[in-house]
C-alpha cells in the first residue's frame, strides 16, 4: 500500500506518522510537500498533526488553501482514503471535505493526555477491521478540538452513521467527565458522506508501539491495509 503524508509548513507529526506507516505497519510511505500538485501514485493520503502555518488566522485555514489540497480533493473524489489527524482534521474541515468546525477546548487550554474512544462505525476504511463499540485508548494533544456543527448537520451525521469515534470511559460509557474538550455529542472523529474521508482529533500514530504505552492505534492502520487489500 502506497501512502503519502502531507507536510505543510508547521506540520509536526509528519515524521511520527511516516515512521509508523513505513517502519511499524509496513506501508510504502513517503512525504508530499504542500506546494506539490499531484498525488497520483498513492492509495492513502494522511494529513498529519501539528500547527500548519502556526495556527495563525484559524487552525487549518491557510493549509486548506495550499496547492496540494487540489490533489487531496481529487484523491477523495476518486473514492480513495484520506485520513486527517488532529491538525489534519482541522484542515479537512477548513477545506470543506468534512462538515463542522473547531472551537477552543472548553478548558481553554491545550490538553495532552490519554483518552478512550468508542468505534461508532466500522463502515469506513479507517475502522473496517475494528468492531462496533470497540474501545481504543489513544492520546490527544490539541487546544482546539471542541467540535461543533449546526443541528441539521449533526442530524445528518447521525442519520448517515458518520460519527466514527466518540470519547468514552475505559469501559465504553459516555459522560461529560470523559469528554476532554467539550466536543458536541462527544464526537472525536467523523467521515464524509462517501465514507472515504475520515478526520479524528486523537493520535493513532502515538499509540502504535507498545513501548510508547499502547498499540490501539494499530486498529486504524490495519483497517486501512485491510481496506486496500479488499
Amino acid at each position: 500500500m502506497k501512502a503519502a503524508v502531507v507536510v505543510f509548513p508547521g506540520s509536526n507529526c509528519d515524521a511520527d506518522t511516516l515512521h509508523v506507516l513505513g517502519n511499524v505497519v509496513g506501508m510504502n510511505a513517503r512525504y508530499a510537500w504542500h506546494a506539490d500538485t499531484s498525488l497520483d501514485d498513492v492509495d492513502l493520503v494522511v494529513l498529519p498533526g501539528g500547527f500548519s502555518h502556526g495556527d495563525y488566522l484559524r487552525t487549518g485555514a491557510m493549509a486548506a488553501r495550499a496547492p496540494i489540497m487540489s490533489a487531496v480533493r481529487e484523491h477523495a473524489d476518486g473514492g480513495r482514503p484520506v485520513l486527517g489527524i488532529c491538525n489534519g482534521f482541522q484542515i479537512l474541515l477548513e477545506a470543506g471535505l468534512l462538515p463542522g468546525a473547531m472551537l477552543l477546548n472548553d478548558s481553554t487550554q491545550f490538553r495532552c493526555e490519554w483518552t478512550h474512544l468508542r468505534v461508532e462505525s466500522t463502515d469506513t476504511p479507517c475502522t473496517s477491521a475494528a468492531s462496533n463499540g470497540q474501545v481504543l485508548r489513544l492520546p490527544i494533544a490539541h487546544a482546539e478540538g471542541n467540535y461543533v456543527i449546526d443541528p441539521d448537520g449533526l442530524a445528518h451525521l447521525h442519520d448517515q452513521d458518520r460519527v466514527v469515534f466518540r470519547y468514552v470511559s475505559a469501559s465504553g460509557n459516555r459522560s461529560p467527565k470523559t469528554n476532554p474538550n467539550g466536543a458536541i455529542d462527544d464526537i472525536a472523529g467523523i467521515c464524509n458522506q462517501r465514507r472515504n474521508v475520515v478526520g479524528m482529533m486523537p493520535h493513532p500514530e502515538r499509540a502504535s508501539e507498545a513501548e510508547l504505552g499502547g498499540e490501539d492505534g494499530r486498529a486504524i492502520w490495519e483497517s486501512l491495509l485491510a481496506a486496500a487489500g479488499a
Partner: peptide
C-alpha cells in the same frame, strides 16, 4: 504537564 505536548516525536517512553 498536560498543557505540554509531551508525546510528539513518538519517543516518550
Amino acid at each position: 504537564y498536560r498543557q505540554y505536548d509531551h508525546m510528539v516525536g513518538a519517543n516518550t517512553v
